[in-house]
Amino acid sequence: MKTALKVLLASFAAALAWPALAALNVFACEPEWAALAQELGGDKVSVFSAVTPLQDPHRLEARPSLISRMRGADLVICSGSELEIGWLPLLFTQSGNDRIQPGSPGYIEASQFVVKLEIPKVVDRALGDIHPSGNPHIHLDPRNIAKVGDVVTERFVEIDARDADYYRSRAEDFNKRWEQAMQKWRQEAQPLKGMPIVVYHKDMSYFINWASMREAGSLEPKPGIPPTPTHLAELVERMKRSPAKAVVYSPYNNPGAAQFLSQRANIPIVPLPFTVGGTPKAKDLFGLFDDTIERLVAANK
């Protein structure tokens, strides 16, 4: 009888302790934040990314599977600045999870912690699907990754104080490696200075700014509006007068329009990873920048 009671008590204690042993569930909207959370959280976190590299983060749907994921999330990390406005608000209201609502420690809007580019002076939908609070694709400036990383560590510590030391030491290690990598990338990206490129969507702006490149045009006539024949013809003409060094696109873009411009204006076409997992080499955040720089430098020769 006594042993039975002991077993019962022990299993009861184990059941109570179980949530503490379980990994922290991180719901990242985009793969880059999933990769960052994984770097910083190690085996104390279980990470899920809503968007895959082949999906356009603007155009996801609030699928049932995402609602389930959101229900069990302890921390949500998203770019924000209205990038996910078409689907994320529904996940918040339908998940029945008070820990990750905007304003609570369980929600990180990454773009709030960096200096944003392209904040429009005039906000009008006739200008396309513009984001009033600035360009939300902030992750392609390595300095921004470091800034957001600090916030992620801070929240890990806040939510899961038991493992605070673990998170802090991982953060220290990551920051050291990131700092070294940034120095290396600075060197490697030297030749890109002033290099004019044509982008598909304005999702490369932070990289262009970091590497002091020049955006010579975009395949979309206006942000969020798919390429039109008239606009492409215009772009071909412009490229004949002052050619860009490359036309780049992301894995979620249809390469058709980029190929068209590449052939007509005789400009090399460069598929870029855009995010972690976007190319085989971009398997983590370090690989993402290695590969992006390598591909652009190769095209610039």
Binding site: R71, T93, Q94, S95, G96, N97, D98, R99, Q101
Partner: peptide, 11 residues
């Protein structure tokens, strides 16, 4: 009105 402050999946 709809709740956003409940947990455990309740709305």
């Amino acid at each position: 009105i709809q709740t956003i402050g409940l947990s455990h999946g309740f709305t």
